[in-house]
Design a protein around this nucleic acid. Structure first.
Length: 311
DNA sequence: AACTAGGGCAACCGCGTTTAA
DNA sequence: CTTAAACGCGGTTGCCCTAGT
């Protein structure tokens, strides 16, 4: 049957969302929550179909979304999960809190696929160009173990000479709450206000329908929530604790404006740990986004080997 | 400086599944 | 039980930005 059930209302808008539309959607969802997407457009005063609203919210506006570059661990996880389940992006995304299936899919199509194909080197297959679509032949869903090995080596051991994934030894990922609405690192910052977002970030985490994986992956260690001045605390994604110098990196305002020295202190500390990354946790509100810091490539090998295979 | 190609990513499309009447 | 609407997912498209020429 006509599958445009959601879009046959006529006069539905398409294409990129304007800041105003985002604002309307955020305002509506933050006050009413979501349940029936089909009625969201009307109630929120949007000329969009419910499907479009849902997509916009899920993939872009929801506050618990994690933006910024994928960490090596995430990449590794994606690769192994993809090897197991294939293009089931939603399933893969469920293992990566805050990441959307769309984002993972895009990431796969632009980076990893390329990487896997790249090490064609003198390796076995000699496979002729073989059309554009890569027909996976070896493992359940793709790449040969040979290719995976190459990839893992690439990730874990090679001090990436100029690895595309790590352009600098200490790669810092920015994803502050404001940038979620500010068009992110495009640097365009075309006048989108983050005020509304801040407002929405003030809601309790239950409001956000975090899924189980997210809740499990993100709880702040109790040691972080006691005796701290700052509202915003860096939380290691896996184990370990954060030293005072790292904690002091966050100023009272809760803004993520870090001094270079502080940043360096935190980065140094992160490097000394075998911890895949950090995110910021608001004591009251839960995961906030903020700045995520990954390890350097030098300790990546050790880290990966100690990293739990499943989250 | 102007043009072009390629990449990244947000959004849409269409199909399969689930839910509700 | 049947059917239609809504939802969720994966594939695809197209816009925009950037690097290269």
């Amino acid at each position: 049957m006509g599958h445009h059930s959601c879009c046959n209302q006529q006069k539905v808008k398409r294409g990129l969302w304007s800041p105003e539309e985002d604002e309307k959607l955020i305002r509506y969802i933050t006050t009413h929550g979501y349940g029936c997407w089909s009625e969201v457009p009307e109630k929120a005063g949007l000329q969009r179909c419910g499907k479009s609203c849902r997509l916009r919210w899920i993939n872009y506006l929801r506050p618990d979304i994690r933006r910024g570059r994928f960490t090596p661990e995430e990449e590794k996880l994606i690769i192994s999960l993809h090897g197991a389940v294939g293009n089931r992006w939603a399933h893969i995304a469920s293992h990566l809190p805050g990441r959307t299936d769309n984002e993972i899919k895009n990431y796969w199509n632009s980076w990893i696929k390329k990487k896997i194909r790249k090490p064609s080197t003198p390796s076995s297959t000699t496979a002729a160009p073989r059309t554009t679509t890569d027909h996976h032949q070896h493992s359940p869903f793709g790449y040969s173990t040979n290719q995976l090995d190459l990839l893992n080596q690439d990730l874990a051991t090679k001090p990436p000479v100029q690895d595309t994934l790590f352009s600098s030894p200490n790669h810092l990922f920015m994803f502050d709450t404001g940038s979620v609405l500010d068009g992110i690192n495009n640097g365009d910052g075309n006048g989108r206000t983050s005020g509304l977002f801040q407002e929405s970030a003030g809601l309790s985490s239950e409001t956000w329908h975090l899924n189980h994986q997210q809740i499990q992956a993100l709880p702040p260690p109790a040691s972080f929530t006691t005796g701290m001045d700052s509202n915003y605390l860096p939380v290691p994604l896996i184990g370990n604790t954060v030293p005072m110098e790292a904690q002091s990196c966050i100023n009272e305002e809760g803004e993520m404006a870090m001094e270079c020295l502080q940043k360096q202190a935190l980065t140094d500390w992160v490097e000394s740990q075998q911890c895949p990354g950090f995110l910021f946790w608001d004591q009251d509100e839960g995961p906030l986004g903020g700045e995520e810091i990954g390890p350097t490539s030098s300790n990546l090998g050790a880290m990966l080997s100690s990293y739990p295979s499943s989250l």
